Amino acid sequence: MVSGTLSVESLLDKMLSELKTLLIHRQIDAPLIIGIRTGGIWIAERLHTELALESPIGTLDISFYRDDFSQIGLHPKVQASHIPFATEGRDIVLVDDVIMSGRTIRAALNELFDYGRPSSVTLVTLLDLQRRQLPIQADVYGSTLSLGPNQQVKLTGPNPLELEISQKD
């Protein structure tokens, strides 16, 4: 079992290096970055700054696209998604803080395609918890993490960005 905190800065450095290499390999020189609310936006902002991209950052709030929406209801902090650019035929870097089951990413892709059909989507995530329920994998991730059955991970931020691993109540 894991406890304590992880260095977000070292994970971001690793992700940035791998993302730059992947974008060069795929011949993508002007990707559009979209972060999934909330932690994904914080990470997307950091990657966007480090890549020195000129385009604005997009944000997705996938609440209405969740497949468990009818079970959990509407979260009181739902905010509008904001995609300030055309996605049709563009290369997208989709960023989230943690990938676990793959359901959040599936919802994000559904919403993203409502804006248009991108040329490509590169998935970047800080942590991979390796508990997949859907066949979705990150192209770039900071680290994998195995949690005990009563543990949870939470990204807090945005300044500073910190990962906290704790026991569930």
Rank of each mutant, 00 (worst) to 15 (best):
I92F: 00
A30P: 00
A107K: 09
E9S: 07
K20I: 09
G116H: 02
S146V: 11
L6A: 03
R90P: 01
L147K: 12
E164D: 04
V98Y: 13
T144E: 09
Q167T: 07
F85W: 09
L19P: 12
V2Y: 15
I83G: 04
M15I: 13
P56W: 04
H82Q: 04
Q152N: 02
S7Q: 06
R46W: 09
V78G: 01
A80E: 01
S120T: 03
K168D: 05
A107D: 04
G102N: 13
R117T: 01
L94E: 11
E45Y: 05
R117A: 03
V2E: 07
D169I: 13
V140D: 08
P76G: 02
M1Y: 06
Q130G: 01
N159I: 04
L23R: 00
L11D: 01
I92R: 01
Q151K: 11
G148V: 03
L53D: 08
A52R: 12
L134E: 14
V78N: 03
D128S: 10
D13A: 04
P84A: 01
I165G: 09
Q27R: 15
Q167G: 05
P56L: 03
G102E: 10
E18K: 14
H75C: 01
R90K: 15
L32E: 03
Q152W: 14
S101I: 11
G157T: 08
L123R: 05
M15L: 13
Q167L: 11
M15S: 04
D139M: 07
A108Q: 10
S70V: 09
S63I: 04
S119V: 02
G73H: 12
T21N: 15
T122L: 00
I99L: 14
S17W: 15
V2R: 11
I24G: 04
T87W: 14
G73T: 07
G116F: 03
P149D: 09
T38C: 15
V8I: 10
I136C: 09
